[in-house]
Design a protein around this nucleic acid. Structure first.
Lengths: 126, 126, 126, 126
DNA sequence: GTGGTCTAGACCACA
DNA sequence: GTGGTCTAGACCACC
């Protein structure tokens, strides 16, 4: 469901938030869909339940999730329609700029970078 | 010399490190060049000298600066003839994986991502 | 865990660094082992937490420790398969040159020096 | 006359003191011999004259040098006879132990170390 | 609970 | 003049 990297620099609870947001923007998560329980997620990724709870709480405060007693967290009814591709690309911009800047500092050609991106894509898809 | 934003989220000492790296990469700082003294920088930006010292110390540990007692910090001669391309690409891997993962969660096609990367590259090059 | 001598001339944070290195080299600390918390160490030796933090930060910059938010510092997995012997010898060069220079100024014959080196080796091995 | 390494970790003034001591112990400098003037040394090694002056002053305070107005510093009449080789070797002990300890940590065989020492010796003799 | 960041201020060593 | 070291104490982010 989520892919968590505890040593990635970005806090874990933020990784979860990001991923929920992304999947909602792209329609992979739709209103009414249920999220895994805090306990399940915590066990699956060997995380502290408080960490996941914090992510869910923040997403709820943002209005993206709704909590119903006794039931798992659900995706809230969308305030905004799903985003089109251009809008979703906008999400990626910071990561893109970061990548490009590093690559240029490391004197890596755009061709090589494209190759590497391609490789990373196929590897991540498996 | 440096532009510091104390409320930017990224720690001040890290901002300094970043900027030194960038200036070295872009040739604005060359081996043997001297950096502003800890005290001067501290006063100029109303910072605690230790904050700047920390940045300098870490840059020294990284091998980018050399210290000679009683003299200002200097840009180090590049000890590494150069990393080969494979190693440099390895540095990019985390950023790449992060990007690809986000893109897939946003349901963005590899083609679109490539386009966006291309655009970011040319924009960053200007 | 560590033995600290505040009046030994060598800075405290450096004593800690040294001892971590030694314990790793001798196998007393293995990858994944956790180090005492900054606060515990600080209290135990009546030091300022920042002093210990500095040591940990530098060890992390060196790649010997890894940090995971909210968890104690851990010994890093050895990323480098191993330096080849030439590189390791390069590390010794400054100490070697220093020794040779002193020996020559003391007018000590190379044979005597070799003998002394041999004796020091066996004594240190015990 | 002296070989100075400004980036060697040991302070410059201490390097000078050491070297004078060593040469006296081995008889390469005898009572009445004159040392180079502060100015000459400073110019030759691109050092701050104060640095050399400090070394000379400390040596004078120790009784190893005598200062006569208008004349260069001279080696003082020896309080102690020249040292025999055993005593001179004792001077080297700390450097030796340091070297051996590092070599063992780097997992360098005694044979290799001997080779390296030999090479350093011949190179330093040139 | 963990470590991180920063400040204010003192004192030291070196050139 | 340079940087280094350490303290005391405050506040933050994360798990």
């Amino acid at each position: 469901m989520f892919s968590i990297n505890p040593s990635s620099g970005t806090p874990i609870y933020r990784q979860i938030i990001e991923q929920v947001r992304h999947k909602m923007a792209s329609g992979q998560l739709k209103p009414g869909d249920e999220l895994p329980s805090v306990r399940d997620l915590a066990q699956e990724h060997a995380l502290n339940p408080m960490t996941i709870s914090k992510a869910y709480t923040l997403l709820e405060a943002e209005g993206l999730l709704v909590r119903q007693r006794g039931k798992p967290m659900q995706i809230a009814a969308l305030k905004q329609p799903e985003m089109d591709e251009v809008q979703r690309l906008a999400y990626l911009l910071p990561a893109l700029q970061n990548l490009v800047q590093s690559a240029q500092q490391l004197n890596i050609s755009p061709e090589r970078l494209m190759q590497a991106l391609d490789a990373a894509w196929t590897q991540e898809s498996e």
